[in-house]
Write a protein that binds this DNA or RNA. Sequence first.
DNA 1: ACTATATTGCAAATCATCCGCATTGGCGAA
DNA 2: TTCGCCAATGCGGATGATTTGCAATATAGT
Lengths: 136, 136
Amino acid sequence: MNAPDPMIRITTQRQILLEELGKTKNHPTACELYDMVRKRLPRIGLGTVYRNLELMADTGIILKLEVGGSQKRFDAEIEPHYHIRCCRCGKVENIEVDIIQDIVQSAAKKTSYDIIGHHVEFSGECPDCQDGSSKI
Amino acid sequence: MNAPDPMIRITTQRQILLEELGKTKNHPTACELYDMVRKRLPRIGLGTVYRNLELMADTGIILKLEVGGSQKRFDAEIEPHYHIRCCRCGKVENIEVDIIQDIVQSAAKKTSYDIIGHHVEFSGECPDCQDGSSKI
DNA sequence: ACTATATTGCAAATCATCCGCATTGGCGAA
DNA sequence: TTCGCCAATGCGGATGATTTGCAATATAGT
Ligand SMILES: [Mn+2]
Ligand SMILES: [Mn+2]
Ligand SMILES: [Zn+2]
Ligand SMILES: [Zn+2]
């Protein structure tokens, strides 16, 4: 009936993008990733970075984090886990808290939505920001 | 040592903004609120809306929701509660799930952050979007 | 009422993200 | 291998959301 899915090619920019994302635990933004990748592929375009991150997130090989702050962040770790964000510097880190399965069940009972997922985001002051908190 | 805090004035635009936000349970965006308020204050500027929402959120009399999607949303209900967002239409609603206090304690043990708060956001398909899901 | 200054409306600037398009480059077929 | 199709890229320019600068205005203390 409809045309076959267009093929997805393995391009250098995709490989390197994925490699660089895999190297860090910093949940980089698209721009941060752009800077990282540019050290190896100086001519890559920012649009390519956005397009491919979007594609990979849709495919499910990476995670797009819609956390607080004005920029989206990306994560190579796709196993479910939660995050904590520093309310001062905006840094996002993993937090090793057990996934709450119960909450999805009890939420399902309380809503007529068809629940697809959930995310828990803590916020607080990171150690770095605690030190100089009153300064500046 | 430093100058006293500048006074905060009760302006018409602030009063009406707060009233309009209080009237709805829809977690409006700044632009949606702008449209609502403009019916009563046609000459209000969008900048004023943004500035005051920011101010009120900082003061703690309203909540700024940093949920998924590209726009921030605002909430007059400041008692802790969780939200669910429709992954199709972007609508955000409250979800009546008990606040998980335990998770904050266990998170506190797992991190060196000074935890200030947390938020749980579910995502799923709202009833409206479930119907016509395959259409269009 | 008078004044000091916090706040506004407006417009222009910024920031993140997306898009159109001519050119390039994967990769399956010959 | 080479060839050719068309997915993907680099570019630069749109878009949408939010912020900011500034002269004009309005609140609140005297
Ligand atoms: Mn992570
Ligand atoms: Mn709410
Ligand atoms: Zn920090
Ligand atoms: Zn919906």
